[in-house]
């Protein structure tokens, strides 16, 4: 074990008093390095998302938050790093795909696309529908159910180009729910959504963790982090701190991650 790994192992023990069963770590990524061009965007970073808890990946702009999430899921090439699923190394991309429902950044896609809200929700049921097959009525019913969980059932036949930002995010979430995966990984789920949608998403994430599902989200808002998440990883190219959110977002850690960029009021809000 490298010193860094020893330290991490020590942390995982601290949190519960005993070393957690590796299978209790739903998704872990360790030693992840990603470089765009010559400069590493992420250097030996990682996280461990514990089962039934909500983990926030946090840090300043350009810290590599989304990069860490995508690299952990194998969506972008990495120079180093390993992903573990319930304690076991991930050897096949398929295993990860079954276990993790990914919610990309809303702004990453062109919403002026010829698809209805129901079409997008049905993408999440593709495994049940099968390749080159048309969805059956039970798939439609299921997709409508997931849309209803987010209050979007009335919009099922709308072209997605007509949705507001909050509605787009709800459709993305319905699509992820449709995968019925034990882990849900979200990239900036609260960016540019209205307050009602934000509330709804927060409640949904809480009820999903209550069911034993694991939430991992890239999040940048320090003021809401404590209310929305249980654990955090604070990044700035490398990991600054990680653990239960009160410890990970300590004044000292925030100071190191953000330098002098945070006003005292922001620090107060973040550290509670």
């Amino acid at each position: 074990m490298t010193p860094a790994e020893l330290k991490l192992a020590a942390f995982d023990g601290e949190a519960t008093g005993v070393a957690p069963d590796p299978a209790e770590i739903a998704l872990a990524a360790e030693g992840v390095t990603v470089a765009y061009g010559k400069k590493p965007a992420l250097l030996g970073a990682g996280f461990a998302a514990r089962r039934g808890r909500r983990l926030a990946i946090m840090g300043p702009n350009g810290a590599g938050k989304s990069t860490l999430l995508k690299a952990a899921l194998g969506l972008i090439p990495r120079l180093s790093g390993e992903t573990r699923l319930f304690g076991a190394p991930v050897s096949r991309r398929k295993a990860l795909a079954r276990a993790v429902a990914y919610v990309p950044q809303r702004a990453a896609v062109d919403w002026d696309f010829p698809a209805s809200v129901l079409d997008v929700a049905l993408m999440g049921l593709h495994r049940e529908i099968g390749w080159a097959r048309a969805p059956r009525s039970r798939h439609r019913d299921a997709a409508m159910g997931y849309l209803a969980q987010l209050g979007m059932e009335a919009f099922a036949d709308r072209p997605i180009g007509q949705l507001s930002g909050g509605q787009q995010q709800r459709v993305f979430l319905a699509r992820a729910l449709a995968q019925n995966a034990p882990i849900i990984a979200l990239d900036e789920p609260f960016a540019g959504v209205d307050a009602a949608t934000e509330r709804r998403i927060v409640d949904l994430l809480a009820s999903l963790t209550a069911e034993g599902r694991t939430i991992i989200a890239v999040h940048h808002d320090l003021t809401t982090a404590r209310g929305y998440f249980d654990d955090a990883v604070l990044l700035n190219c490398t990991v600054i701190s990680r653990g239960p959110i009160e410890e990970a977002l300590s004044r000292d850690a925030l100071g190191r991650a953000y330098g002098g960029r945070l006003a005292d009021t922001q620090l107060d809000a973040a550290t509670g």
């Binding site: 991309r93 398929k94 795909a97 990914y102 990309p104 993408m123 995968q179």
Partner: peptide, 8 residues
Amino acid sequence: PAYAASLG
């Protein structure tokens, strides 16, 4: 495409 990749 990123979502499609995440579906494996």
